[in-house]
Amino acid sequence: MKDLMGLMGKAKEMQAKFQALQDEIANLEATGQSGGGLVQVTLSGKFDMRTLKIDTTLMRADEGEILEDLIMAAHNDAKAKVEALMQEKTRELTAGLPLPPGMKLPF
């Protein structure tokens, strides 16, 4: 019974840590870029777009498709960076926990 109470206490502690981690991840920001920095997208940890910057040299009527592709590439770059930050933060929190290989946490 004593072990069960200790396990329940540890579970509550881990739950609080995971909630803090989720809050921290939500406040993260990552900026992706494409076209050598001509297009930049900043995403939050929840993948909300915070900023979009487009160099004025790309704003020509005949280059709409190129600009669309660059925006998508910058967004995907920022998304990959947010995902990498999330994995890093999760790895830091779960270091030393006896989790089965490949187990994904509820994020």
Results as ranks from 00 to 15, higher is better:
G6C: 10
G6Q: 10
L7Q: 12
A11K: 02
A11R: 00
E13I: 00
E13P: 06
M14T: 00
M14R: 11
A16G: 09
A16L: 08
A16W: 04
A20R: 13
L21I: 08
L21T: 00
L21S: 09
D23T: 00
E24V: 09
E24I: 02
I25R: 02
A26H: 04
N27L: 15
E29D: 03
A30Y: 00
A30G: 09
G32D: 15
S34H: 05
G35A: 08
G35L: 10
G35T: 11
G37D: 11
G37H: 01
G37I: 03
G37K: 02
L38R: 07
L38N: 04
L38Y: 08
L38S: 00
V39K: 03
V39I: 10
V41Q: 00
L43R: 04
S44Y: 04
S44A: 01
G45H: 03
K46L: 09
D48L: 05
M49A: 03
M49W: 04
R50A: 07
T51L: 08
T56A: 12
T56W: 11
T57C: 14
L58R: 03
L58V: 05
L58Q: 06
L58D: 02
L58S: 07
M59Q: 08
D62W: 14
E63P: 10
G64C: 14
G64V: 13
E65S: 05
I66T: 12
I66P: 04
E68V: 07
D69I: 01
M72R: 03
A73K: 05
A74L: 10
H75V: 02
N76V: 08
D77G: 08
A78L: 11
A78T: 10
K79C: 10
K81P: 01
K81M: 08
V82F: 07
V82R: 08
A84D: 13
A84H: 10
A84P: 13
A84I: 06
L85Y: 15
L85V: 06
L85E: 15
E88T: 14
E88Y: 12
E88M: 15
K89Q: 04
K89W: 02
T90K: 01
T90G: 03
E92N: 09
L93D: 02
L93I: 04
L93A: 09
T94M: 10
A95F: 05
P98N: 14
P98T: 15
L99Y: 05
L99M: 11
P100L: 13
P100H: 06
P101C: 13
M103D: 03
M103Y: 13
K104V: 09
K104N: 14
K104W: 06
